[in-house]
Design a binder for these strands. Structure first.
Lengths: 199, 199
DNA sequence: TCATTGACATACCGTCGGTACGTCAATAGC
DNA sequence: GCTATTGACGTACCGACGGTATGTCAATGA
């Protein structure tokens, strides 16, 4: 199925180079500080190629990079959760995994800082929903239905928890926090989750 | 004390016009979408005036606007909290007030979306700390010392709660949520706070 | 009264995102 | 196998934008 014709092969290669280099540059210096000239040079192509693959220009390219990063996080969280049998453990382990995944430098800035500003909060939120917040919502819903969590609307909960973890990840990755803070943050988060339980 | 000389009076007037119009434009269309030309025209001045008052240019102007917005929120939260006698009520009422204040459209985008992206998360966080998160930290600290909250490091808590409220405010102000969601979000937040109590 | 300075306005520059157009090889049809 | 077509770019250029250097003129202080 792969490599049907030298044409599509080259195409995919160029696209991947663009994605890879832009992700690196965006995460290192931020969306606004990276120019297209530098971007295409790093990828070994020209602006013509960029606009051929991403008609929307810089914004479109960023959108693709963001989606990639978000889905990576989403997969990591889902995988960690599915390794657990107990629904409650799926929630807590998933949250821990999210904290770890969102702390990675190559993810941080793109997903949590530039994302909302470049694409607007609504679109960012929709993408986040599709990639990873969806899992959180599903986990909470099933826990409510199972009676493990006290009955309540899950949507506000998703936003509160999602926001808490996002900010915590930002803090944990910042120079103002040390490696020992991760445990404290995880513990505090666990306590907050515990508060939702019915028993 | 006010109006010492026609000179300082005009100066302050120009500065306020710049601040007011830029805050309006930034909150309406976002930092990146507003050009300096439009900005200075709306304020009735020229770029020379802008760079005279804000040597750092667009970034400096945004920083001043952000600081203004943050301190407004901080004052509202502090005022609401101080109206309460019970320390625990100070915390909960302060959080509710923050939710209300941060939902205002003229605050939202500047404080929660563009802020971290334009100035970087570190600087944004430092300003937030000085303006409003400080109050949250103090309230939590005194509650821990009073034995009302279980002993634990407060810094992670501050970040978790702050992030939760920020994201909740963003959601509550978005078209994807209705006015009835505010009560649900407030209730969920209250439950999370309740989880911190020792009794 | 006059020199100084502060609060701007004007003119200009480099850079950046975006677009129009040209090029050339890979594919498709005969 | 030959040719028409198309797709994947490269090149040249444009307008707009943020930023700066310089000019101007009234308020201030001696």
């Amino acid at each position: 199925m792969r490599q049907q014709g030298v044409r599509a092969q080259q195409r995919e290669q160029t696209r991947q180079a663009l994605l890879r280099e832009s992700r690196r540059l965006f995460s290192e210096r931020g969306y606004a500080a990276v120019g297209l000239a530098e971007l295409v040079q790093a990828a070994g192509v020209t602006k013509g190629a960029l606009y051929h693959h991403f008609p929307g220009g810089k914004t479109d390219l960023f959108r693709a990079v963001l989606e990639e990063a978000q889905q990576e996080v989403g997969r990591r969280v889902a995988a960690a959760a599915e390794a657990q049998d107990d629904p409650w453990m799926q929630l807590t382990v998933g949250c821990q995994e999210f904290l770890a995944a969102a702390t990675a430098p190559e993810i941080q800035r793109i997903m949590l800082v530039d994302g909302p500003a470049v694409l607007g909060w609504s679109e960012w939120r929709a993408m986040d929903e599709a990639a990873s917040a969806r899992h959180l919502a599903e986990a909470l819903t099933s826990l409510v239905e199972a009676g493990i969590i006290v009955p309540q609307p899950v949507t506000p909960l998703v936003h509160l928890l999602s926001g808490a973890m996002n900010e915590a990840a930002l803090w944990l990755a910042s120079p103002s926090s040390g490696p020992e803070d991760l445990a404290d943050a995880a513990a505090a988060l666990k306590r907050m989750l515990q508060a939702l339980r019915a028993d």
